[in-house]
């Protein structure tokens, strides 16, 4: 490797806020300022942040749909194959392929497939489990799961500059601004 990336000295800068309103307004302003590589951290889900941070649609519903379809096809195929091909058995004179009887299990496997896909898909898209993350090193961050709201502008952002970004964050009237070590 001839080209060596300079080691970043910071993961980013993190501003701490007291209310969800302050966080949403800070995120909106940061986006207007041109920052893109940033994330907000909050103890509650805040729908308005999706717009403020310019988050797109999630793929979770699509993954869930695919899981459900696969589950349904899988369940029905299992029933058809086992009842009509693998071990055909006459039960009460009903046809081997007695599809109305196959519906309840098909429904259950559809639900199961959708739920498993939804659960696994959501955590994988979130890249969790991830036991360690640089933001955990910020002392005040333990309150991100209780009563404080954080906005972190990451050093990978093209507009990131330690001094001007810090100044910008200060202008949002945070409780404090801290460095996030990489």
């Amino acid at each position: 490797m001839a080209h060596v990336e300079p080691v970043p000295t910071l993961y980013g800068l993190m501003a701490e806020f007291e209310t969800p309103t302050a966080l949403v307004s800070a995120a909106t302003k940061a986006r207007l300022e041109g920052y893109r590589h940033m994330d907000a951290y909050s103890p509650i889900p805040i729908e308005e942040l999706n717009e403020a941070l310019g988050l797109g649609r999630t793929k979770v519903p699509l993954i869930t749909l695919i899981g459900g379809i696969l589950g349904g096809i899988g369940g029905y195929t299992l029933e058809y194959w086992s009842q009509a091909i693998a071990y055909p058995m006459n039960v009460g004179g009903r046809p081997y392929h007695s599809w109305p009887h196959f519906i309840p299990v098909t429904f259950e496997t559809t639900v199961l497939g959708a739920a498993l896909a939804c659960f696994v898909g959501m955590w994988m898209l979130n890249k969790l489990p991830m036991p360690y993350h640089p933001v955990f090193d910020v002392e005040a961050f333990t309150r991100a799961s209780r009563d404080r709201f954080f906005l972190c502008i990451e050093s990978t952002d093209p507009r990131f500059d330690r001094h001007s970004t810090s100044k910008f964050l200060e202008s949002l009237h945070p409780v404090g601004v801290s460095d996030v070590a990489p």
Partner: peptide, 26 residues
């Protein structure tokens, strides 16, 4: 799982939670 309350996570989380609710109802 290393949950950190990221807005990106919350967005997917809320979607998944609602979907699971929708799936659980029937």
């Amino acid at each position: 799982l290393g949950w950190r309350g990221s807005a990106r996570h919350w967005q997917r989380y809320e979607t998944a939670y609602l979907l699971l609710a929708g799936i659980s109802t029937p």
